[in-house]
Simulated assay, not measured.
Amino acid sequence: MAKSKIIYSCIECGYKTTKWVGKCPQCGSWSSLEEEEELPKEVRKAISNNQVGSKKVLEFQNVNYTNEDRYKTEYEEFDRLLGGGLLKGEVVLITGNPGIGKSTLLLQVINSYKKYGEVLYISGEESAEQIKNRGDRLKISGEGIYLMSEMDILSIYEYVVENKPKVVVVDSIQTLYNSAIDSISGTPTQIRECTLKIVEIAKKHNISFFIVGHITKDGKVAGPKLLEHMVDAVFNFEGEEGLYYRILRSTKNRFGSTNEIAVFSMEENGMKEIKNSSEYFLSEREEKNIGSMVVPILEGSKVFLLEVQSLITDCTIGIPKRVVQGYDRNRIQILTAIAEKKMYIP
């Protein structure tokens, strides 16, 4: 049997080369080439034959679709972010920093989906006992929820196709591997092949998937850029260290609006959605607060009221210094220049 060889693939554009280079010749990205194994021709052919399904062609006007094809939860903000609910056969990628609450939110969400049928939570990072312990803390009843601590995508494929749950959570895609491929989990090859298998199951059997993805120190999804292209929606979980609120931002959504955000609060009993986010952010603001003002900010289709504070003090050095926190410093420079030029405010 032929041996696999090492190649270098650009995570931004997919360019491949046998030698590592600092700058991708195709897209110009720096340090974007990652090492991966190129599978032998017979292995690629075997995988391709395994993925071939029934070639069923449908006429466009004969395809039926109704809103009943969407699964809804008790979290209105989460459903709004999805475009009105989770579509059957949809694959959603959720990313975020470690410990920000991705697994907690998904465990709460699938507790709502179990009314539509069996839901499956697959974890390659935690045991079933650990997940059950977190579920008890979140006061989640286990009826209709099934746990699976498995990392081999072929075993997962076999179980899901046989039992056909309505919704499946994969936590996380970087821990999965395909035993037919001779490489460790987390490599670009394994992430790509495992995601292809998941997309195949979702589209072929109308099973919805949530995939948890790790991010790098640069804030990008770990693995090939192809991962974000293969899924139907990409949600980023954001939050400042030391603060209780979390922001779930939609950066890609084939079945809804992009750049939409939903605000959650990390409580003792899990994630709580914040419907009136303006009231939440301004709850501790005094009515007469000198040096601050409330401004409307448009994010997606929602308007948020946020407080902007300013502090001016005498400067002992020759050249005054302007410091900005929570806003783009260059934009502040432009706004202050306009205020001085047009409004005659020094």
Rank of each mutant, 00 (worst) to 15 (best):
G89H: 02
L120G: 04
E77H: 10
G22S: 08
V43C: 06
I110N: 05
D69M: 15
L107K: 09
Y8E: 01
R70H: 11
S103P: 13
Y65H: 14
K45N: 10
K114E: 05
K114L: 03
L106V: 08
D69C: 09
K132H: 04
G124T: 08
N49A: 14
E42C: 02
G117W: 10
T73R: 14
L81K: 08
R134T: 06
L107A: 11
Q51K: 13
E34K: 14
G117F: 11
I100T: 10
Y75N: 14
P40H: 03
I100L: 13
D79V: 11
G84R: 03
E68T: 13
T66M: 13
Q61D: 15
L87K: 15
Y8Q: 01
S29Q: 07
F60E: 07
L33C: 10
G14F: 05
T104L: 02
Y8S: 01
P98M: 01
I47R: 03
E37Q: 03
Q61A: 13
K41I: 12
E36L: 12
I131D: 09
E126V: 06
V119S: 03
W20Y: 09
E12Q: 06
C27K: 06
S9N: 05
T18S: 09
I131L: 15
E68C: 05
D69E: 15
L120F: 10
T17H: 00
S54L: 12
S54R: 13
L106W: 06
G135Q: 03
N67I: 07
V43W: 03
E76H: 11
I110V: 13
N64V: 14
D69H: 12
C27Q: 03
V21F: 09
K41Y: 11
K114W: 03
I110C: 06
G124K: 09
I47K: 02
F60S: 14
G99K: 04
K102E: 07
G84L: 05
K102V: 08
G14S: 14
E42L: 07
R70T: 11
